[in-house]
Each structure stands twice: as C-alpha cells, then as structure tokens.
C-alpha cells in the first residue's frame, strides 16, 4: 500500500510538469482527486481494511493527500502567473518618457498672490475685489486726491472716453472713468458697503500710462489691505507687516517704516525690507510697499466717523514681490508667456 501511494504521488508529480493552462489543471485535478481520481480510489479502499490497519494506512493516505494538495496549489499559482502575464503583455519599461503632457503650472504671479493672500488670511483678512474700470471718484476723490492735488501728478492715468458707460462702475454726474491706478478703489467700495470691523485684502490688476521697460508695465498687480475697527494703531500696522514679511521672506527678514506721503493715509510710510536671503539684493533696505493709518478724511468721504473708527492700509506690487522672491530681473517676463520662463515655477 505504501508503495502504491508513493507511485501515485510520483506519477502525479510527473504529470504536473505538463500542466500549462487552467483547463489542463482542472483535468489533472479530476484525474487525481476527482470522484474517479486515482487518490480517491485509494481512499475508497480504506473501507476494506481491518481496524488495526486503518490508522497506519490512514496516516499514509493523509501524507499522500497533502503532497497532492501542495502540488495543486503550486500548479494554480503557476497557471495564474501565466494568465496574468498573458493579460498584461510585455513588462513595462519605466525609464521610457511618458507620452502625456506633464503637469501644468500656475503663473508665478498667481503663486505669489496666493502665498501673500494666505499669510494675510491667517491674520483674519479676507479677499475683496472690485472693477478694473473705475470712476474717478472711487479711484481718486474718495481717497483724498482731488483733481488739483499734486499727488495726481505721481501717476499717469488711462482714461475711457466720455461715451463709455460701465455696468460695474456707474458714474455719478459727469466724472471720468479710468482704468484703476491702484486697488485702493476696492477699499473705498468696501468702506461704503460694509460695517466695521473688517479686514480685507484686495488683489487685482492696475494700470498706469507707462512705457513698458524692464521695471515698468502698462498693467501690473497689487495687493492692498485695509483694516477698519475702533482703535486700530500704528503698532497694529507694524504687527501685520512684520508677520507678512516673515511669512513671505523668512524669519530673518526685518522691516522698517520710512515716513512718506500718500493722500489717503496719515501718517504714511514706505515699508522697507532687509533680508539675508535675496541673492545680490541681500542685506540692504528694499522698498516693498506703501502703508499707513487711513486718513480721517478718507473715512469721512467713505461714510465712516473718524472719531469712532480708525484703520490701517497697505499696498504692495505683486510683480515686485515675485521678482524679489524668485530673483527675476525683468518685469516683462511675466507677460511674455515664454514657457521656458513659466515652467520654472511649476
């Protein structure tokens, strides 16, 4: 009996070598362990054995059965491997360049804008927007810059013809429409439409009648901020700007507030930045943005009581910040849209 079983297992192992498909596996399985299989036949023979022989033979049968089951399991793996290989085809060469377009990228101005907005959001500023074509009142008069004010010489403005009517910025009377020279007009609209306290940042496109060169652009982008509440102070301004600069330029960047003049703030400052990490511009004071406390006259013009409320405001040029952060030397790169430039910021 022992010999018969050994012979049976050896035969099965021999036959297994020829099994290559699932069908052959099933046929082989039937020949050995099926109802009429060779092993099944031996097992049926158990019934004829004596009580004493049964445990001995039973043990031998179990051993043979285990060998056959292991053989079947190995065969199943082999057959599955063959099936998977057939389904997947030739192996993949991971070193071949993919045919699909690489990931796209955001424009460096967008990246810079979002980074700046994110840092101000942490301080509770939320984003406000307004029209690019503005009335002179929103762009100048409400900001304490009447028509004969010398501050209007500071910038040259692009005007729309008298016939132009804007759905987004209706005129009061016969004032002119302009392409906004700063996003301060959004501050004006916010003060007129909301009740303090509020903290807003206004990113957006602005325009000057400037010839295009390495540092001037017919349009450019600003991010301006405004915080109106009771008792907003110069210390608050310094706190906000300090936070922003450390977020944007790193913890070792420092700021100074240099007195300056804007018609819409009093006192007014230019904020200078000094950082050891700005390449050839490292370790010197760089003018970054204008800022100050909102002039009481502006609050009044925008319908807020200067005795009750005060505010701080600041405005920076997105291009300038992006140029500093990335070491870009010519503002025109932002608008040329050469992919060799744009892809550097992916």
């Amino acid at each position: 009996m022992q010999q018969q079983l050994a012979q049976l297992v050896a035969t099965a192992q021999q036959e297994a070598l020829a099994v290559a498909s699932r069908a052959e596996l099933e046929a082989f399985k039937a020949r050995v362990v099926g109802p009429n299989g060779s092993l099944t036949a031996v097992m049926k023979g158990m019934a004829t054995l004596s009580k004493e022989e049964r445990p001995v033979v039973g043990k031998l049968i179990n051993e043979a059965k285990k060998s056959v089951e292991e053989l079947l399991a190995a065969l199943l793996l082999k057959v599955e491997d063959a099936e998977i290989a057939a389904a997947l085809g030739a192996p993949w060469d991971a070193t071949l360049t993919g045919p699909d377009a690489p990931a796209g990228s955001l424009h460096p101005l967008t990246r810079t804008r979002e980074r700046i907005l994110a840092s101000f959001r942490k301080l509770g500023f939320t984003v406000a927007e307004g029209p690019e074509i503005e009335t002179e009142w929103h762009c100048f008069d409400a900001l304490n810059t009447p028509a004969d004010h010398p501050a209007r010489d500071m910038q040259d403005t692009l005007y729309l013809p008298k016939s132009f009517r804007s759905a987004d910025a209706p005129r009061k009377g016969d004032e002119a429409l302009v392409l906004r020279t700063h996003t301060s007009s959004v501050q004006v609209r916010t003060m007129l439409s909301r009740k303090p306290p509020f903290r807003i940042v206004a990113p957006g496109r602005c325009f000057r009648r400037d010839a295009v060169d390495a540092t001037h652009s017919a349009n450019f982008h600003q991010v301006e901020g405004l915080w109106i509440d009771r008792n907003v102070t110069l210390a608050d301004l310094r706190g906000v700007l300090d936070f922003f600069v450390k977020e944007t330029f790193g913890a070792d960047a420092e700021i100074r507030l240099r007195p300056s003049f804007f018609p819409f703030t009093e006192p007014s400052f230019e904020m200078d930045l000094r950082s050891p990490n700005l390449g050839r511009l490292s370790n010197r004071w760089l003018e970054i943005m204008g800022c100050g406390l909102v002039d009481p006259k502006v609050l009044e013009l925008c319908g807020l009581d200067p005795n009750e409320f005060s505010g701080l405001a600041f405005g920076l040029g997105l291009e300038r910040i992006a140029m500093l952060v990335h070491g870009i030397d010519d503002i025109r790169h932002f608008y040329n849209n050469d992919l060799r430039f744009l892809r550097q910021f992916a």
Binding site: D100, A101, P102, A103, G104, S105, L106, H107, L109, T110, E114, E132, L158, L179, R205, F207, S217, A218, N219, F334, Y335, N337, L339, L342, R343, A346
Partner: peptide
C-alpha cells in the same frame, strides 16, 4: 484660485497677458 488649480492639474500652464 480654484479654477487655476483645476486647469493646472489638467496639464495646462497658466499665462498672463496685458489687458490693453
């Protein structure tokens, strides 16, 4: 912000042109 992220994610590169 969201639409720029969506299109950049779809393989498009963002450009910036003059308004005028």
């Amino acid at each position: 912000r969201d639409v720029a992220g969506r299109l950049a994610g779809a393989g498009f590169t963002e450009c910036c042109h003059y308004t005028l």
